[in-house]
Amino acid sequence: MFRKELHRFLLTAQLADPAQFQSSMFSQSVTGPNNEADYETWRSNVGLLLKDTRQSDLHKSQKVLESLLSPAIDIVKHLTPETPPSVYLEILDSAFSTVEDGDDLFAKYLNTMQDSGEKPSAYLQRLQVMLNATLRRGGVSASEFDRQLLRQFVRGCWDNTLISELQLEQKKQNPPTFAELLLLLRTAEDRRASKASRMKHHLSASKPKVSSHYQGICAQYGEECITLQSPPDSSEIQDLKRQIADLQTQLTRVTQKNGGKNQSKPEAKPKAPTPAIPKSHPPTPHSQPERNTTSKRPKPWYCFRCGEDGHIKPQCDSEPNPSLVATKGRLLKEKQQAWDAVNSTSEPEHF
């Protein structure tokens, strides 16, 4: 009999007010739905229901039962429909409400800041739920509720533009209620979203030169912006790649040239002592060719990958040719041995 009356009452209530408690279910189940509210959020919504003097206690008790799911509803199954809603809440508070005292809850409340990506209105609602729990535990007085709520919102909200726009700093002495402040925030958020949407629609067809200004505006309002800058031209990319390849080739040649100069010279026979040259006379010109003989030694000006001339292995895109590389290496070695034999046995002329 009780279930039939309850079912009929729930249908009537949903037709009269379909949004009431449909988005605020509570079960305390580990595997509950993702959109299920935590106990403090559910308790805050029930508190608003209990303050409504136009509804009877029976109606309030039925709405409390409607918003409960198993296993939370199992705790109050033994109660009758005529039980006052305050008794329901007393039992549920003893099972699911926080056990921290008011001072600890207030300290935690003061350390609650706006999360990344969280809207200011959602942050305010989260603060209101925490402050309600603190109020029930005696951590804050009812007369200080609105002032503490506005104070922490201004302190923990990172959107300074919104705070200045709504002049919230100037309202600390005469703070608005939670409902008034929430309406202000949601109105400002809706106005910003509408403006950002209009900017996207207008600037998406604009020239690329306004893209930097558009991106700066969207960053201020925290909205996603479309990219209006055109991608780099493919010819520019190819030109940059060619320049990098040329620089790498030049660097390799300089490195090889310096390496050849630093090679040890062949051991020469002892020279006869030469007479001292006066400091006023410049050195004889025959000494210059002797210093440059090692630079004429044959070097491997071919690719170690394909064996072709004109490039080096890091810039080679051809197929490997080990036989050609080995042949050129053998010829180079023979030329170097012949050059070493000639230059190591030649006697420099003495004057």
Rank of each mutant, 00 (worst) to 15 (best):
R3W: 10
D159C: 10
C316Y: 10
T227I: 14
Q256L: 14
L247N: 11
K172H: 14
T293E: 15
A72S: 13
A196P: 13
E66P: 03
A179F: 04
F153E: 03
Q173T: 09
Y123G: 11
P348M: 03
G259N: 15
Q148L: 10
R3I: 10
Q215N: 00
P322D: 03
F21P: 02
Q215K: 03
E118I: 05
V325K: 06
A179C: 01
P298V: 07
S344H: 02
R137D: 02
K261W: 11
V140P: 07
G139L: 07
S230P: 15
D104H: 12
V325T: 04
H281G: 00
Q173I: 06
K265Q: 14
V64R: 02
A142W: 10
N111R: 14
D38Q: 14
G259P: 01
K279Y: 00
R136I: 04
H311D: 06
E319D: 14
A205V: 00
Q14N: 08
E267I: 09
W158G: 11
L181A: 08
P84W: 03
Q28E: 09
N292V: 01
R147W: 11
Q152E: 09
L247V: 13
P314D: 09
P270K: 14
W339A: 12
N343T: 09
E82Y: 03
K195M: 09
L181E: 06
S24I: 07
P348R: 11
F304P: 01
W42R: 00
P270E: 13
G102D: 01
Q28G: 12
D239W: 13
L203S: 09
Q243K: 15
L247P: 00
L49Y: 02
S86D: 14
P71S: 10
Y88K: 04
P320N: 08
P84C: 06
Q170F: 05
G222N: 14
H311A: 07
L324Q: 12
D233T: 13
Q248L: 13
V129F: 01
F2P: 05
L124Q: 07
D146I: 00
N35P: 11
L11G: 06
Q167V: 04
T161S: 08
T294W: 03
N262S: 14
D159N: 15
E66C: 06
N45E: 06
Y221E: 12
T41R: 06
A72E: 10
E118W: 00
H59G: 01
D17P: 06
Q14G: 04
L185T: 04
E236C: 04
E347G: 01
S197Q: 15
G47W: 01
D17Y: 08
T274W: 05
R136E: 09
C225Y: 08
L166D: 01
A193L: 14
T345E: 09
E169L: 15
R155I: 03
F178G: 12
C303D: 01
P266D: 08
W42Y: 07
E118D: 09
A326F: 03
G102E: 03
A326C: 06
P300F: 06
L324G: 03
L149C: 10
C157K: 09
W158I: 10
H201C: 08
L68K: 03
E290A: 10
R297V: 08
G32C: 11
E82V: 05
A13D: 09
S94C: 02
P300D: 14
A13V: 07
H281N: 06
